[in-house]
Write a protein that binds this DNA or RNA. Structure first.
Length: 477
DNA sequence: ATGTTC
């Protein structure tokens, strides 16, 4: 990114000076100068475009892991007021609606389980369907899929996947309100009927990780984390259904924008007013996809528990938390001393409520929401906690991952999947995947340095670091 | 991200 175009507000926050006479809401880019310098200029172009959309409240923002996306940058956050003509955009949510991370904490120590990692890797790879178009053991009828879209993880628990106690530890208690299955196309449903309980491909993964470092002992205690402990993180989303909803509604929202005379700075920013038939229809479908993603991660958590119980008898996996990365949610936020209800787009950004937020489970009230920054294959991940400052600075939002630094095509030219997997094995990290192409695209070197992203996230005041997790076993889609 | 150029 051309840093000459930015004005630095503090060590970890930048803005774009307004041209004389230009009427435009503010843009804020969170992150260190070295992180921003390596970002594509398109991140700046895209977030500047977002700031021109109707009904924006406060600045359009990017998180420290931001990169070029479809219309909105990934790592983009923007809030809109429906009463001021505020819009909802499918590109502002992303194609993988409610992609996110389920983090499970175990009662196992690295030293006690390390000998079983090869067996665990094989058993997980066998039990967790992964890859493009991969189907699982479940084949749902159209009616059953409607129930998934309405019930989310709660539906999955009632089907016998996991326990009731998981639900309080999932955003929205495992069930997103406002889902309208009738707004989801037959094609989207058809694609999903065999894909429940599957991981998908791309950057999705299931990792067994060890807590290598604790940054904040008080929060770690509240989250039930200690050094040497094994965790499992499951990163996936709403599979074919979410993708098809994104595809379907780009067309419908573009038509609505045209009909209502909304000037789009980029056709990829197709959007409609929240208070319009098309906007409402998209939100109903998007909420249905959120429930599909929540149910999907619940089923995968259950499958993971079954493998652990078989391979390491006596093992137990409790839900630490389940975060979504690609959503547009109606939330109460403080604006100029007044509470307002805003629709917050978070695309490749994690909700990060601070301490005492009513949406948090009792055990996390004192320390804030767990925020999980999923690193790239083989590098490491972070658990952080939401802060009061994050509410003021970014509508309670934080980074979601390392964030790509290089396109998939560029990564394919630079690395070979098989070599990377051998190399990681030498570092004590077992990868299991069907796709060597996918492994090359996901090369750690194609991502930003997750340590720098987590550090910048903390120093920008968005969330504070609680623990660093080192991967030991990784199932890739 | 994605039945990976529906």
């Amino acid at each position: 990114m051309d840093m000459a175009r930015l004005r630095q507000l503090d060590d970890y926050c930048f803005t774009v000076p307004r041209a004389a006479g230009e009427v435009r809401s503010e843009v804020l880019l969170y992150g260190s100068a070295p992180l921003l310098r390596t970002m594509d200029d398109m991140v700046l172009t895209q977030i500047t475009n977002v700031a021109k959309l109707p009904g924006l409240v406060g600045p359009a923002m990017t998180m420290p892991d931001a990169h070029w996306g479809y219309g909105f940058p990934i790592g983009g956050v923007a809030a809109f007021d429906p009463d001021l003509g505020g819009i909802v955009s499918a590109g502002g949510v992303g194609f993988d609606i409610s992609c996110g991370i389920r983090c499970l904490r175990s009662n196992l120590e690295l030293k006690d389980a390390a000998a079983q990692f090869p067996q665990l890797a094989d058993a997980l790879f066998q039990a967790i369907p992964a890859g493009v178009g991969e189907e699982g053991a479940l084949k749902l009828s159209s009616h059953e899929l409607d129930q998934v879209m309405l019930g989310g993880a709660e539906w999955a628990v009632h089907q016998g996947y996991g326990s009731e106690s998981d639900l309080a530890l999932i955003e929205e208690h495992g069930k997103m309100r406002g889902a309208v299955p009738g707004n989801v196309s037959e094609l989207a449903k058809k694609r999903q009927r065999g894909e429940m309980g599957t991981l998908g491909s791309g950057n999705h993964y299931l990792e067994v990780q060890v807590v290598e470092k604790i940054f904040d002992t008080q929060a770690a205690r509240a989250f039930g984390l200690h050094e040497g402990q094994l965790l499992v993180s499951i990163h996936c989303g709403s599979r074919g259904l979410g993708h098809q909803i994104g595809t379907d509604y780009l067309v419908s929202l573009a038509k609505a924008a045209s009909r209502l005379g909304i000037v789009l700075p980029d056709r990829e920013l197709a959007c409609a007013p929240i208070n319009s038939p098309e906007g409402q229809e998209y939100l109903g479908a998007m909420n249905a996809a959120i429930n599909v993603a929540l149910a999907n991660r619940q089923i995968l958590a259950h499958l993971t528990r079954a493998v652990f119980a078989r391979v390491i008898p006596g093992s137990h996996l409790a839900t630490l938390y389940d975060v979504s990365h690609n959503t547009c949610k109606l939330e109460k936020h403080r604006v100029d001393g007044k509470d307002r209800m805003l629709y917050v787009h978070r695309k490749g950004a994690t909700r990060a409520f601070g301490p005492n937020h009513p949406a948090l489970p009792a055990e996390y009230q004192a320390v804030g929401q767990p925020v999980i920054i999923g690193g790239s294959m083989g590098t490491g991940s972070y658990v952080l906690a939401g802060t009061a400052e994050g509410e003021r600075r970014a509508w309670s939002s934080a980074s979601h991952g390392a964030g790509r630094a290089m396109s998939r095509n560029a990564a394919l030219k630079k690395w070979r999947g098989r070599e990377l997997i051998e190399q990681l094995k030498g570092q004590g990290i077992l990868i299991r995947t069907k796709s060597m192409r996918g492994a090359a695209e996901e090369a750690p070197g194609a991502y930003k340095d997750v340590d720098l992203v987590a550090e910048a996230t903390e120093k920008a005041g968005l969330a504070r670091r609680v623990a660093f997790l080192r991967p030991k076993v990784c199932i890739k889609g």
